[in-house]
Write a protein that binds this DNA or RNA. Structure first.
Length: 156
DNA sequence: GAGAACTCATAAATTACATCA
DNA sequence: TTTGATGTAATTTATGAGTTC
């Protein structure tokens, strides 16, 4: 299978001399697959599990431990990247929404300046919860705002 | 009970090697 | 063949929790 060319005992023998060059093991596909399976079940191992896995994969327990440490780090990094992407998209949609609202404010101001063009009251609706008056002409905005917010913040 | 000293486990940061385009 | 980029195994360092005295 796939073991380091020297054992821990070898390293002890080397004391006094120069340390052996750090050799890097490449895990086989099968070893990686089993480690991934194990990681999916549990992100940490107890000593017994570690020992068993090491025996099964013909690796040292320390190598299993290191693999799990690195795997947790990779997993966390990926999670952070995903969250970052999500926040970027959210920020983008909020910016877009903000622009639309600014435009609408400008339109409403323009209407105020020219009262003859004011929307008839029948086209205005009032939100029963926040008691704000909105035009019925902009339901899409409400929908897009809803889309942009995460679930727990959609509560109006 | 409070706290210093120690051990152990884990995360985070870094290094170094293998592989590939 | 060389080289730079990339992935990742391995090492080092920092930190927190638990235990003992």
């Amino acid at each position: 299978m796939n073991r380091l060319p020297w054992s821990e005992d070898d390293e002890e023998l080397c004391h006094g001399g120069s340390a052996p060059p750090r050799k890097k093991l490449r895990l086989t596909r099968e070893q990686s697959r089993l480690l991934e399976d194990s990681f999916r079940q549990n992100h940490t191992l107890n000593p017994k599990q570690k020992e068993a896995l090491a025996k099964h994969l013909m690796l040292r327990p320390r190598q299993i431990e290191v693999w799990f440490q690195n795997r947790r780090a990779r997993s966390k990094l990926k999670q952070t990247e995903m969250e970052c992407e999500y926040l970027k998209r959210w920020f983008g949609s909020l910016t877009e929404q903000n622009h639309r609202l600014h435009r609408e404010v400008e339109e409403l101001r323009a209407m105020k300046v020219a009262p003859s063009t004011v929307t008839s009251t029948s086209s205005l609706t009032m939100c029963p919860r926040c008691e704000r008056v909105t035009t019925a002409a902009s339901p899409s905005m409400a929908a897009s705002a809803k889309k942009a917010l995460p679930l727990k913040e959609r509560e109006h």
